[in-house]
Computed example of a mutant assay.
Amino acid sequence: MTGPESEGSPVRRAVCPGSFDPITNGHLDIIARASRLYDEVFVAVMINTSKKGLFDVDERIGLIREVTAEYANVRVEAHHGLLVDFCKDRDIPAIVKGLRAVSDFDYELQMAQMNNGLTGVETLFVPTNPTYSFLSSSLVKEVAAWGGDVSHLVPPQVLAALGDRLRKD
Rank of each mutant, 00 (worst) to 15 (best):
H79G: 11
N48Y: 03
H80W: 10
M46E: 07
H80C: 11
K52P: 01
L54T: 02
T68V: 12
Y71Q: 13
A78M: 09
H79Q: 10
S50H: 10
V43P: 08
V45W: 08
V57R: 11
F42S: 07
I61D: 04
V45C: 06
D58Q: 12
N73P: 13
V76H: 08
N48T: 00
V41W: 04
F42W: 13
D58F: 00
E77K: 10
V43D: 05
E77G: 04
V45S: 06
V76D: 05
I64E: 07
K52I: 00
I61F: 06
H79P: 12
H80D: 15
D56E: 09
F55L: 02
I64T: 04
T49E: 15
D58M: 07
T49H: 15
E59V: 01
N73F: 05
A44P: 10
I61N: 04
V41K: 05
I47K: 11
I47G: 06
V74W: 09
K52N: 03
T68K: 11
V74Q: 12
A78W: 07
V57P: 14
V67F: 11
R60D: 03
G62H: 03
T49P: 15
V67W: 07
A78F: 11
D58N: 08
V45N: 05
A72C: 07
D56Q: 02
H80T: 09
Y71P: 13
D58W: 02
V45F: 07
N48H: 09
V76W: 07
I61G: 03
E70V: 09
V74T: 11
G62K: 03
M46K: 07
D58K: 12
A72I: 01
F42E: 08
E66A: 10
A44H: 06
G53P: 01
V45H: 08
T49Q: 15
H80M: 12
